[in-house]
Simulated assay, not measured.
Amino acid sequence: MRAARLHEYHGQLHVEELAEPALLAPHDVIVRIGGAGLCRTDLHIQQGQWAEKSGVELPYVLGHENAGWVHEIGAAVSNVAVGDPVILHPLVTCGLCRACRIGDDVHCEDSRFPGISVDGGFAELMRTTARSVVKLGAGVEPGAVAALADAGLTAYHAVRKAAPILHPGTFAVVVGAGGLGHIGIQCLSALTPAEIVVLDPSEGALALARELGADHTVRVDGTHVAKVLELTDGRGAEAVIDFVGEHGIIPDGVAMLRDAGSYFVIGYGENVDVPTIDIISREINFVGNLVGSYDDLANLMTLTRQRRVTLHTTTYPLDAVNDAMADLDGGRLQGRAILVPA
């Protein structure tokens, strides 16, 4: 099979021929990839930021946002059949630890993370397990929804955690209307009555945000903090949902937060540097978000089937993986990039 592998950090990916993955356990599922999303995490992996945390050995296949069709199943698999269209929960989980038992499978004690810690979906075929596959509804093409496996899942997960504090009359500030942010806007609109304020430096991204349900859009131009405070009568927002996490935005996000508000960290790349006395005196909260549970993904696919969440994508053939990575890094994408192996 053909696959895109990373051989050295800071180097380009190489499209090459590899042996097809084989069934190794009764609950294994081999998926023929119909689409694999590109994520800023892929750039961070390429730059070596995940090397120590993941412990992966190079070379290996990237790609953690995957959807396709069931190609082969193990002897104990009963929830899907060969040919079924599926989207893949990004983690391969054990199902036996306490976290899995209570539905918090994102914190499984014995998990694997295809595309980060083991071979992923920038390939024609990928191995996962029966616990990770969500069947797609009739008429849903895997390539059209692949990025929801992480970008959409992470956005939904963060919004679901923010929803209890976003009652009528509250404000949610979305930082970044790109690949994750444009999904987060739709999830906020579907799950909460809050007024949605979207920040982005791109007028094109802000125009898309308005189409997707943003009540207010603010261009990041040096006056954005003051504009958000004006929109919120000087009090700030109950929730700041940060899909960027770098380029100096974090102090601005904290300044836009209401006292007793919560800052949801999704994007990453820089440090949160806030004096502890400010955290205490303002009683503000910082909430980390790492993908989401299998149940989160199933719920997100329900919203997708109801057309309450749609994914804006640009597709690339597998051979153009480095062009896609460059476009993502250069900020030339609106929505999400999808690699199509065929």
Rank of each mutant, 00 (worst) to 15 (best):
L6P: 00
G11F: 02
L18P: 00
L18F: 09
P21F: 04
P21R: 00
P26A: 10
V29E: 01
A36W: 02
L38R: 02
C39Y: 06
D42C: 12
W50R: 09
A51G: 04
S54D: 09
V56T: 12
V56Q: 12
L58A: 04
L62T: 01
L62I: 08
A67G: 05
W69F: 12
H71S: 12
E72N: 12
G74E: 07
V77F: 13
V77I: 12
V82E: 14
G83V: 15
D84F: 10
P85E: 02
P85T: 01
V86G: 04
I87K: 10
H89G: 07
P90A: 11
L91Q: 06
T93Q: 03
C94K: 11
C97E: 08
R101S: 15
G103L: 05
R112V: 02
G115A: 10
G115I: 02
D119S: 06
G120P: 05
F122C: 03
A123T: 04
L125D: 05
R127E: 07
T128S: 13
A130E: 15
R131P: 08
R131K: 15
V134S: 05
L136C: 14
G137P: 01
A138F: 13
G139H: 07
V140K: 08
P142N: 12
A147L: 10
D150W: 02
A151S: 13
T154D: 00
H157N: 14
R160H: 11
K161T: 09
A162N: 05
P164E: 05
P168E: 13
T170H: 08
F171G: 02
V174I: 15
G178W: 01
L180I: 14
G184I: 07
C187Q: 06
L188W: 05
A190S: 15
L191H: 06
A194M: 04
A194R: 01
A194S: 13
D200R: 03
P201N: 07
P201K: 07
S202C: 09
S202T: 11
A207Y: 03
L208H: 02
G213F: 01
A214T: 04
D215S: 11
H216L: 09
R219W: 01
G222S: 10
H224Q: 15
E230Q: 14
D233V: 05
E238S: 08
E238G: 01
D242A: 12
F243D: 01
H247S: 13
I249G: 06
D252M: 05
A255C: 09
L257M: 13
D259T: 08
F264Q: 02
V265F: 01
Y268N: 14
Y268T: 13
G269S: 14
V272K: 01
T276Y: 14
D278L: 14
D278G: 08
I279E: 07
S281V: 09
E283D: 14
I284R: 08
L290D: 10
D295Y: 03
D296Y: 12
L300Q: 00
T302L: 15
T302G: 12
R307P: 00
R308M: 13
R308I: 05
V309D: 03
V309M: 03
T310L: 01
T310Q: 06
T313V: 12
T313Q: 13
Y316S: 10
Y316C: 10
L318Q: 13
N322T: 06
A326L: 13
D329A: 15
Q334S: 11
